[in-house]
Amino acid sequence: MAVVVVTDSSASLPADLVAELGIVVVPLHVLSGDRTIREGIDPIDLDYGSDDVSTSAASPGELRAVYERALERSAGAGVVAVHLSQQLSATWEAGRQAIAELGTARIRLVDSLGAGLATGLPVLAAARRAVAGDGLDAVHGAAVAAASRSRTFFLVNRTEQLRRGGRLSTAASFFGSELVTKPLLQIVEGRLELREKVRTKSKAYSRLVAAAVDAVGDEPAAVGVQHLGAADAAATVTAQLRERLPDLNELVQAEFGPALAVHLGLGAVGIVVLPGGCGG
């Protein structure tokens, strides 16, 4: 049997790719009042700007159960679990605890060093190696290599939710300035940081695309574009990327799921680039 690849729902992968590659997705939790909502499973209708909405990682117990089933499905070939950055969520640490409890070397844990499609593209790289029949070391190595090569850039309208959730490491630099600037963020070694402040919306989208193009260089690349309630802006960004990246070999498009949307807010647009591609 083949190695099984597991991820969490923040990876934002389209359902057809998940089904085609046999990827196992563990739901993260969105908390609203006294409700605990499983992302991708339970219906969600939320005000993403509300102080009453927050998120929660998958628990060690949840992950242990999923890893056990995945290992059984692999018939001993092994499991590679790729989760969002441990700097941004407790999910990776919960996975580490779950694997320690299981006491097996046949489950490998990978920090994607990102979130959203920055997790999803390394998952694709690993899952395609698994489907091709590669062993545990090769599948794990593909995920680690893809995570280390990917670069992520976000444009958000406001950083209030990110500050409130403790996800933004340069929050102090925003105070008193958000009303006249658009924050362009990037993920560096798993941490969300300010890249620059841009004065106008049109210039902000141009700078977002430029950052992605610069990160790719002259290599072929896989690209992911995500948004929350900003379909027109995402379409414009995608068209510019197609024009400026002639060696773009794969494009994955998705909306941000609720667990990320709670922190990014409406109007967010993100680009993930993976130089070299992810085996598509």
Score class of each variant (00 low, 15 high):
172 A>R: 12
56 S>F: 12
187 I>N: 08
158 R>A: 06
93 E>A: 14
257 G>I: 00
110 V>P: 00
225 V>G: 13
41 I>C: 11
87 Q>W: 01
79 V>G: 07
172 A>Q: 03
11 A>Y: 00
263 H>L: 06
256 F>L: 05
37 I>L: 09
1 M>R: 10
172 A>I: 13
36 T>I: 07
28 L>F: 08
4 V>M: 10
130 A>C: 04
132 A>M: 10
22 G>I: 14
143 A>N: 06
46 L>H: 03
47 D>Y: 14
15 A>L: 04
139 V>M: 11
125 A>I: 05
233 A>R: 05
98 A>V: 11
169 S>F: 09
75 A>H: 08
20 E>K: 12
192 L>N: 15
100 A>Q: 14
10 S>E: 02
146 A>Q: 03
273 V>S: 10
256 F>Y: 04
97 Q>K: 14
165 G>R: 11
172 A>M: 12
269 V>Q: 12
98 A>P: 00
179 L>C: 08
116 G>L: 00
188 V>P: 01
27 P>C: 03
197 K>M: 11
149 R>I: 00
146 A>R: 01
32 S>E: 01
264 L>I: 12
272 V>Y: 08
171 A>Y: 13
121 L>A: 03
15 A>G: 14
13 L>Y: 12
276 G>I: 06
184 L>G: 13
229 G>E: 10
247 D>Q: 13
279 G>D: 08
23 I>E: 06
248 L>V: 03
144 V>A: 04
174 F>P: 07
194 L>R: 09
238 T>H: 07
88 L>G: 15
230 A>M: 05
94 A>W: 02
229 G>H: 12
124 L>V: 00
150 S>V: 02
205 Y>K: 15
134 D>M: 10
211 A>P: 02
28 L>M: 12
